[in-house]
Simulated scan of single mutants.
Amino acid sequence: MRLTQEQDELRAAVKSLLARHEGTDAWRPLTEQIGVASLAVPEKYEGAGCGAVDVHVVMEELGRVLSPVPLLGSAVLAAQLLLATGDDDACARLLPGIADGSAVVGVAWAEDGSWDPAATRATAAPSTAGNRRIDGSKRHVLGGTEADTLLVTARTGVGVSLFEVAPGDPGAHGETMVAMDRTRPLGRWRFEGAEGRLVGTDGGGARALEHALDLARTALAAEQVGAAQACLDLTVAYTKERVQFGRSIGSFQAVKHRLADAYVLVEAARSAALGAAFAAEGAEPAGFGRYASVAQAAASEALSTVAGDMIQLHGGIGITWEHDAHRYFKRAHSSAQLFGTPDWHRRRIARSLDLGRPQEEARP
């Protein structure tokens, strides 16, 4: 699992650009100068035709600075969902805008705290225009209400399907959620007879979304690793500067142990996240979901732990608004819920390995 020279250069370019542009101001130069939104989009749809490892490199750097740009929600989740549907017309219509950063596409599927596509309760009924009327509510839509297009899951007579909905439709009502993590905008959408255009096959939405979610989980794990590394770097630097009893607190054995444990967590999470990215590009995608869950569980727990340690080892300054520690702590806990908790991912891994059954059933 070695990065190529081009990937190292991509990392350096993204890191340099983020040092010059902060917040949402970084989106345009990231897309126009480096083309980050086009990385996972095939060349036939005006993308760069790269893969999950290149996305990993960019997401790790975005995580270091808690960038709020819409790469995860639009250029990863939405783009991969469109590709997974196999709908060439929808891909040709929407992917070029995603790739050049001129359009942001949001995915609305989570309902009532459930991330499971199969738990969809929104409905799609036939309309006179040949489309469908979408009714239902969606939460935790990445990008908030700023999307130019929405991809919405709704249940038809044959199962969960995917529909393209215009945010300006009279039946679509969006509002920005008041989230703990202000660096990741989330939206709440209510649909009351909104016109939806079928994307992919009727009843094929859940399967396509599950694959896209695994790719998004892999990208999110990379972002979490970058944030965890930033927490560790800030903490190490502070323990060298903070003097207590005539010596830097980083020289105390107890502090050394905490930092060493944090380093192990970060490196283990980085290996898991990078392993999932390489697995996504592998020739045998059957077990990719397991790799994605391993990466998500490891990265979520690493970031939550290291962000908590950062606050404790910074002492009083670590709980002030002026210090960035609270921003990383909030991102840690919001990201750990975004595509499933670590416990959910461990249960998923156990099911995929046929573990956790009663002992008598597990006997040959």
Rank of each mutant, 00 (worst) to 15 (best):
R2G: 15
L3W: 09
Q5A: 15
D8G: 14
D8Q: 13
D8P: 01
R11I: 12
A12V: 10
A13P: 04
A13C: 12
A13T: 15
V14W: 09
E22F: 11
D25G: 03
W27P: 02
R28C: 02
L30N: 12
T31Y: 04
E32M: 08
A37I: 00
A37Y: 01
E46T: 09
C50Y: 07
V55W: 00
H56V: 04
R64Q: 09
R64G: 11
L66G: 00
S67A: 11
P68C: 12
V69P: 02
P70E: 03
P70A: 02
P70L: 04
A75W: 00
L77Y: 06
A79P: 00
G86P: 01
D89K: 07
A90P: 08
A92L: 06
A92H: 07
P96I: 14
G97D: 09
G101N: 03
G101Y: 03
G101F: 02
A103M: 09
V105W: 01
V105Y: 02
G106H: 05
D112M: 15
W115D: 08
P117L: 14
P126L: 13
A129V: 08
S137I: 13
H140P: 01
V141T: 09
L142T: 12
G143Q: 06
G143F: 01
T145E: 06
E146I: 01
L150H: 03
L151R: 14
L151I: 12
T153D: 02
T153A: 15
T156G: 03
T156K: 01
T156Q: 03
G157D: 13
V160A: 10
G168H: 05
D169E: 06
G171C: 08
G171M: 06
G171A: 04
G174N: 05
G174F: 02
E175Y: 08
A179K: 11
R182G: 14
R184G: 00
L186K: 08
G187W: 01
F191M: 05
E192Y: 07
G193S: 08
G196E: 11
R197N: 07
V199D: 07
D202L: 14
G204L: 02
G205S: 15
G205M: 14
R217A: 03
T218N: 05
L220M: 03
A222G: 06
Q229S: 13
A230V: 04
C231V: 03
D233T: 15
L234Q: 12
T239I: 08
T239W: 10
E241G: 05
E241F: 07
F245Y: 12
R247P: 05
S248I: 10
S251I: 15
S251P: 04
A254P: 02
K256H: 15
Y263Q: 11
A269E: 02
A272R: 05
G275Q: 12
A283H: 13
P285Q: 11
A286T: 11
A286P: 01
A286D: 14
G287A: 14
A292R: 00
A292K: 00
S293R: 09
A297D: 06
A298D: 14
S300E: 00
L303V: 02
L303E: 00
T305N: 10
A307Y: 05
D309K: 10
I319C: 04
D324F: 03
A325V: 09
A325M: 04
R327F: 14
Y328Q: 07
F329N: 07
K330S: 06
K330G: 03
D343L: 12
D343H: 06
W344E: 09
W344M: 10
H345P: 02
R346L: 11
R351F: 12
L355Q: 15
R357F: 05
A362N: 04
R363G: 06
